[in-house]
């Protein structure tokens, strides 16, 4: 079947009685969209200012001459989507208790990406709390090199006392602590990630350190996001970010309704188009959208100490 656009519209219009459909079909006679005129999206969607507060850089080495394809694709995507700043880390995953040399190498690759894209890529320092005082020294090293916060993965529950010195360092430096999170309900996944923290673990850490700038990472990153949002009602000082590969309807609205938009931060965690789309679709006010897109995180950055 080889339909041209006009004959398709002619044949469909003949069989379609609904007035609403007729209205849509008339609109469809317009030419293919030009930039700035994307169907179903706000006219200014690319121009709305956005900070992606949870993303990653993955490159094959820490040197400036490493393979930059992934990082450059990240920047290209940010250009397409109007994401002004990307706050990135390179965590060591799969439950590996990496030694400090491996952690430094991972952070060096983030620093290299920051040098390649200054003013665009900003860094979180990945730390493995089990490295003890060396982990705290690594935070200082990263901050002195220009990073803005720390990122923890799932090597330890955030209620584990081994994490406390890291939290205290964040308070001392006035920097955000972005934590990997999920309330995993699938036994297979839970067996692979037994120490992943969920909303109530974040709340417990926040109750111990109310002044900590604590961010629950990727509410849509896999795991029961409805549970995560309801869980965070138990603690007022924890932010959450909107990232993750799950694009389920009503997530953003539930965050805003149950927690208040002031606690919600835009992020993608590499699901860049999807997470921008979630924000554009959410039934929230323009001021709430702007706050989530960038203002809330700017407020967190402004609280850093020298």
């Amino acid at each position: 079947m080889n339909l041209d656009r006009r004959s398709f519209l002619r044949t469909t219009a003949a069989g379609l009685g609904a007035a609403r459909l007729a209205g849509r079909a008339r609109a469809a006679t317009a030419p293919a969209p030009s930039p700035g005129d994307d169907p179903g999206l706000p006219r200014d969607w690319r121009a709305q200012r956005k900070f992606d507060v949870h993303n990653h850089v993955f490159l094959s080495g820490r040197r400036d001459d490493a393979d930059w394809a992934d990082v450059d694709h990240l920047i290209e995507a940010a250009e397409f989507l109007g994401i002004e700043r990307l706050f990135c880390s390179r965590p060591i995953t799969a439950g590996v208790l990496a030694n400090i040399d491996a952690v430094r190498a991972a952070n060096d690759s983030v620093l290299a990406a920051m040098r390649r894209h200054p003013g665009r890529i900003f860094g979180y320092c990945f730390v493995q709390p089990g490295n003890g005082p060396a982990a705290l020294d690594e935070i200082d090293r990263c901050l002195e090199a220009g990073m803005v916060g720390i990122k923890l993965y799932n090597q330890f529950k955030y209620t584990d006392p081994v994490v406390f010195p890291v939290a205290e360092k964040c308070i001392q430096r006035g920097i955000p602590f972005l934590g990997h999170s999920a309330y995993l309900t699938d036994p297979k996944t839970l067996a692979l990630q037994p120490k992943t923290s969920h909303a109530l673990d974040f709340c417990a850490l926040s109750r111990r350190y109310p002044e900590l700038l604590l961010i629950l990472g990727h509410v849509n990153g896999g795991g029961d996001w409805e549970w995560a949002i309801k869980g965070l009602r138990e603690c007022r000082n924890v932010y959450l970010d909107t990232s993750g590969s799950v694009l389920e309807d009503d997530t953003i609205e539930r965050c805003v309704r149950l927690l208040g938009h002031e606690r919600v931060l835009f992020a993608t965690d590499a699901t860049m188009e999807g997470c921008v789309g979630k924000m554009l679709a959410a039934e929230i006010t323009p001021a709430q959208r702007e706050a989530i897109f960038w203002r809330n995180f700017q407020g967190i950055l402004d609280r850093r100490r020298a």
């Binding site: 999206l41 694009l247 309807d249 921008v276 554009l280 959410a282």
Partner: peptide, 19 residues
């Protein structure tokens, strides 16, 4: 994948494809 998912993510992808 509506109504499970938001509609706009795929509209963003379509907009990028148009470029």
């Amino acid at each position: 994948h509506a109504p499970f998912d938001y509609v706009a993510p795929s509209l963003v992808k379509l907009a990028n494809l148009s470029r």
